[in-house]
Amino acid sequence: RAIFRIVYCIMMLGCIPFLLYLPYIYGDVLSISFGMVMFWAVSAYEHYEKKRYIALAACVAGIAVLARKNTWIILIGVGIYAVLVCLKKKKGQYLLAGFAILLTAALTVKAVDVMYEYRSGYPSDIGIPSILWIAMGLQETDGMAGVYNRYQQTTFAEHDFQQEPAAQEGKEYIRERLREFRENPAMARDFFKRKLEDQWIEPLFSSLKATESFDTDGEPLSSGITSLYYGNIHETVWKLANYYQSIVYLAGLVLGIALCGRWWQKKEIPTALWLPLIGIVGGFLFSIIWEAQSRYVFPYYVFLILFVPMGLYETGRAISRLPKHRRKTTEQNQTQEESLREIA
């Protein structure tokens, strides 16, 4: 619907964290933007079945995964989406299309690794094992759940930068930590509750924290920048982002309930909604096991904004069905009819 597109554009213009991240060259904006283009291209291919859309999706997928490796979460979602559409439409071409996108992204990363190895003379796979990041995400540090504490660097150095023994220690720690969670479910609930709140509730998603280092060659900051990061403007921006976040989560919740209702009534859910939804769910699961950093979950928050117009529409429909609202509307209609009769 055209109104949905208009509301979406307005919502994105008001997404303060995204605007604050624009000058921050760390890959977030690139991966989010190209990820959104990939969503559109994959949906367009499913609708029109034109090969050019798969070519576009494959190209932007490669760029997005180079910008941020967590793009693999939504790329896995592409694979799941391709399987679901294939099962629904009984056409194997969707599996081939999904495979083409994943293969292009993998080959793009591999090409960069090969180029790095050729130019540097060092292998590209000698870094810190990913399992150590997961182990760190299960730790309590200064009363905070799963925050960065240099555990992975320290453990890697203690094992003389050998991947196998370092990874083994991380696996043993994870097993021990999961055993503690099983023995004390209340502690586990509190730990993951605090971890998810730290990541998903901060309305600016660390955008000011991540961009607050300035290279000014000793010159003082302008009054506007100082106020944005440390003064009155900061408080205003934080409040606006907080209200905005509340609208996004409320609309997402209402739409989720509406979609569950459609599924329960065995009504069809448009396939174009599947891929972003799979990506958001994957991002939520990723935030549970990885380092607690709100910036890492920000892409999935932006993907959720795609559903805000539909969520607001469903909210309006729900309000219109309330008995009190219907009774008031009926009374207004009766009053208008009586007025028309008197005029006649």
Rank of each mutant, 00 (worst) to 15 (best):
Y230R: 13
A258G: 04
P276N: 14
L250K: 09
F286L: 07
W263S: 02
E291W: 03
A272D: 10
I278S: 04
P270I: 01
I278T: 06
Q293F: 00
G231H: 07
N232A: 12
P276I: 13
K267L: 02
T271N: 02
E291C: 12
W274G: 01
Y244W: 15
N242S: 14
L273K: 12
E291A: 00
K266N: 13
W274S: 03
L275D: 05
N232G: 00
L255T: 04
F284N: 09
W238C: 01
L273H: 12
L240S: 10
T236A: 14
V281K: 11
T271P: 00
T271V: 13
K266D: 04
V248Q: 02
A241F: 08
G261V: 09
I233P: 00
P276Q: 14
I280W: 09
N242W: 10
Q245D: 03
P270E: 04
K239Q: 11
Q265A: 11
Q293I: 10
V254S: 01
G231F: 04
A251C: 04
C260R: 06
F284Y: 14
L259G: 04
S287M: 09
I288R: 15
W290E: 07
A258R: 15
W263M: 11
G231R: 05
L273I: 02
K266I: 01
F284A: 12
Q245T: 06
Y229A: 08
Q293H: 11
G279D: 03
W274N: 03
L273T: 03
L253G: 11
L275T: 10
Y243Q: 02
L228R: 11
A272M: 07
I269L: 10
E291S: 08
K266F: 12
T236L: 11
A292Q: 03
L259K: 10
P270K: 02
I257E: 07
P270W: 04
